[in-house]
Design a protein around this nucleic acid. Structure first.
Length: 829
DNA sequence: AGCACGCCGACT
DNA sequence: GTCGGCGTGCTC
């Protein structure tokens, strides 16, 4: 409940209170008293430092200012005001509140997700030895002695250091004793983490702008301090074509040390000035790399504009390489000339240097980039530039919906079907695509959802005319859709024409491509060498000690890897269970495909692209460069080759085994199969040459394969809808899922059953589960979900949320404690 | 999220 | 007996 505050008048002696949002999972806001000297400065959206609880300090955001003293308690004082201007806008606070309600979390959790961590400082308890106090070490207990000893080596320790040191969880009582004995200090420090980057700029004292005095200076310097003369000379040279010269640049260019420059500053020859500089890439003017839209693109652009007149959201369904980006660029230009901001959302994986550079060249200094590979300081700078409206366009991953926009005219959600728009683990469990629709609505802006394989919920909304719709059916630049050939693995095995994992059809196409000096991509949706190692005698398979999944053999490391948690162990030579030496590697991954292909085509230059070969940024860049420079003939890869990467000269694509793509375990099976197959296929072909896709499978008659070949999204849609209708899944239903998570699987299943029983009291058969096979083990936790489905029109989901919240609170304090966590997750389709 | 307080089992 | 883990409640 928000407190009602009177409109504050800023009289000096009046007492004000602020209601603040703390970055914690706490349901309400807290009220703090404003010291008189801050009266004039406090405002909604500024950050304050407050003490919360015994000693912890947190950065909080002011949500309201007022002059009514709370009655039931004495408010603590605000310790510090951190901002001159609000860092968070009123619109953002409204957005946060919506997100907290919609996704059933606290506003503090939203704040945590929204603010770059350099802007939210929390104090850390540090333990420091009390110097100048003679310690009688013989009087110390063992544990106390250990701590003091550790502090001799390290000047300060954190509480968790001490937990590790003593190997026990309860350490506070021991620290308290040490504190009372005057042996240690306990300090709570909080410091601004964001530091502007500064550079010292050098300018020449204007006195020497005159030829005469400069000459005079040289004469003196050349004799007495030749190094300094060099520095001045270098400066004059550099100043001809450079506006600002930093001290470092000057030192480097002239070869004179920093000390020479310093003495010139002392002599007033140079003037040194420290300035904040941006960490962000800066392009002075935009280079207009103009392009023309095709006839169909122009038509679609007009269509989108027309739809926007009536609808707030438009779905753009455009086949791969149909030039959706060009349409986006036109729309962005229109919005920029109208003076409004644009947010261009992309899945993280698609934010490659390629697309960033392309848009940067186009929009120059007007475009800001925001994604997870940015470090904290860079993120803060983007935040500030958006706040100042320095950027007109933001290109970013899902978290960029949290930036402080003022007037957002358009949000483009590219690849809107991508599941990575959804954040799963820490709350808020939001989907940036859906949040974007709300955000745009707040700003009275429009949303364009673009995809070659739209999600069913969006397609559904478009069919209901809730969203506008536009479609691009042709590829840009006269490139033809690829020819797709389906090859039966079973048949070729029978005919003995298959070699290793490659059918004769695929090999023939690869050979032809190599002869023509064209590139080939082979897709195998598994990394590593073999996904399962099994003993032929006793059927033992090594499993991950954390995750309970079978370990994948990686030939490059010679180890067994867990693809969930990253656990590794040496591959055994004899069966650990029965001692037999008959161990068999079952299945195959990209490593094996690469190896065996090299045996068949020894002359081909083969490279592999998966998580293992692209772990470091450099290796990925190197791989991409090699591809670009045609140093690679065949690229073997996982999903990664399908998403976001632009290869221009690939004519043949082979899907080594499509079967794993045809049976996804969840309710989005058909949708995902279609997406994967058409994304991979979409990489084939180039201007002037039709691409070829070979799909190897056992299941040659699978409906989705036919749908992909015919690009029949409507048929796919109706099959999928039918299934979802009978299983009561989205988009006909909204789903809220509650996860029960615990280290003990027994506990998880008992508590899930109990929770489901309680929920059934309210929601009856709208409760699905818990379904036992769905207990999944991730790291050291077991998780089980209970789902609640709500018919879109009939039920009030908000009422349900209230009840769910009640049930959860009741459970958290009684039945469901002992470490289990109930996490509501809302899929609001 | 911390942190304190109180209960209760296990180890000197 | 006491130490330490764990549950519970509170933080302006």
């Amino acid at each position: 409940m928000m407190l009602e505050f009177a409109e504050p008048s800023r009289a000096d002696r009046e007492t004000f209170f602020v209601e603040v949002i703390l970055p914690l999972a706490i349901a309400k806001n807290y009220t703090y008293r404003v010291p008189f000297e801050m009266n004039a400065a406090v405002a909604v959206g500024k950050r304050v430092v407050v003490q919360f609880g015994k000693s912890k300090l947190y950065t909080a955001i002011i949500a309201a200012v007022g002059n009514l003293a709370p009655e039931k308690y004495e408010a603590k004082y605000v310790i510090e005001l951190l901002d001159d201007r609000p860092l968070v806008t009123a619109a953002q606070l409204q957005f946060w509140q919506w997100m907290a309600d919609y996704y059933m979390c606290t506003i503090g959790e939203v704040m945590n997700a929204a603010l770059p961590s350099a802007l939210k400082l929390a104090s850390e308890t540090r333990i420091i030895l009390n110097k100048g106090f003679e310690i009688d070490r013989s009087a110390l207990h063992d544990k106390e002695y250990l701590i003091v000893e550790a502090l001799d080596i390290q000047p300060e320790l954190t509480v968790s250091d001490i937990v590790k040191l003593l190997g026990q969880k309860t350490v506070m009582p021991i620290l308290k004793v040490l504190f009372e004995k005057n042996i240690i200090h306990i300090s709570e420090d909080i410091s601004e983490k964001y530091k502007p980057r500064t550079r010292t700029f050098i300018t020449l004292n204007p006195v020497y702008h005159q030829q005469e005095s400069l000459k005079e200076l040289f004469l003196i310097l050349e004799k007495r301090a030749p190094k300094q003369a060099d520095a001045v000379l270098a400066y004059i040279k550099m100043a001809r074509h450079q506006k600002a010269i930093t001290k470092n640049e000057l030192a480097e260019e002239s070869g004179a040390g920093a000390s020479s420059i310093n003495s010139l500053v002392e002599k007033d020859v140079f003037i040194a000035e420290e300035k904040n500089v941006s960490r962000l890439f800066y392009e002075d003017q935009s280079i207009f790399d103009s392009f023309d839209l095709s006839e169909q693109q122009t038509g679609v652009l007009n269509q989108v504009g027309k739809e926007f007149k009536q609808k707030d959201v438009v779905l753009l369904h455009g086949v791969t390489s149909s030039g959706k980006t060009q349409i986006y660029i036109r729309l962005i230009e229109e919005m920029m000339s109208a003076g409004r901001q644009v947010l261009y959302l992309l899945p993280e994986i698609a934010l490659t240097t390629h697309i960033i550079e392309r848009l940067r060249q186009y929009f120059g200094a007007n475009i800001g980039i925001y994604h997870s590979r940015f470090n904290d300081n860079e993120r803060v700078e983007v935040w500030q530039k958006v706040l100042n409206s320095d950027y007109k366009v933001i290109l970013g991953a899902r978290s960029s919906v949290f930036l402080p926009f003022h007037d957002l005219g358009l949000i483009i959600v590219d690849e809107e079907h991508e599941t990575s728009y959804k954040q799963y683990d820490p709350a808020p469990r939001y989907n940036a695509r859906d949040a974007a629709i709300f955000l745009a609505n707040m700003h009275k802006g429009k949303v364009l959802l673009g995809s070659a394989t739209p999600s069913f919920e969006s397609y559904y909304n478009a069919r209901l005319h809730k969203y506008g719709f536009a479609e691009l059916t042709e590829r840009y630049g006269g490139v033809k859709m690829p020819e797709i050939e389906v090859v039966s693995i079973a048949e070729e095995t029978k005919q003995k024409t298959i070699q290793s994992h490659f059918t004769s059809v695929l090999l023939a196409d690869i050979r032809e491509a190599l002869e023509n000096k064209e590139q080939v991509i082979l897709f195998q949706n598994r990394r590593g060498y073999a996904p399962v190692l099994m003993c032929k005698i006793c059927a033992y398979t090594p499993k991950c000690i954390n995750c309970d999944v079978s370990l994948t053999f990686h030939k490059s490391s010679g180890k067994l890897h867990c693809h969930y948690c990253g656990y590794k162990e040496d591959a055994p030579n004899i069966c650990p269970a029965c001692g037999s030496t008959h161990l068999e590697y079952k299945g195959f991954g990209t490593e094996k495909v690469e190896d065996e292909l090299a045996l068949i085509l020894p002359e081909a230059r083969i490279a592999r692209m998966d998580l293992d070969t692209t772990r470091s940024r450099n290796s990925l860049q190197l791989l991409l460069n090699n591809l670009e420079e045609k140093k690679i003939d065949i690229l073997v890869g996982t999903q990664m080759v399908a998403k976001g990467l632009d290869f221009s000269d690939v004519t043949v694509i082979g899907i080594i085994n499509a079967d794993s793509l045809l049976k996804f375990p969840d309710y989005r099976a058909n949708e995902r199969s279609y997406q994967m197959l058409s994304q991979v296929s979409g990489r084939a072909g180039r201007r002037g040459k039709q691409g070829k896709v070979v799909i190897q499978t056992y299941d040659t008659t699978h409906r989705v394969i036919r749908q992909v070949i015919e690009s029949d999204y409507t048929d796919l849609y109706f099959t999928e809808m039918e299934e979802r209708r009978s299983f009561k899944y989205p988009p006909f239903y909204r789903i809220i899922s509650l996860d029960v998570k615990h280290k003990d699987p027994e506990m998880v299943s008992n508590q899930s059953i109990y929770l489901a029983k309680e929920l059934r009291k309210h929601f009856g058969d709208r409760v699905i589960g818990p379904e036992y096979p769905l207990v999944s083990r991730i790291r050291n936790y077991y998780i089980m979900s209970i789902m609640l489905k709500f018919e879109k029109e009939a039920d009030s989901i908000n009422k349900a949320k209230v009840i769910i919240r009640e049930v959860i609170t009741q459970f958290q304090t009684t039945k469901l404690s002992k470490g289990s966590i109930v996490q509501p997750d809302v899929d609001p389709y």
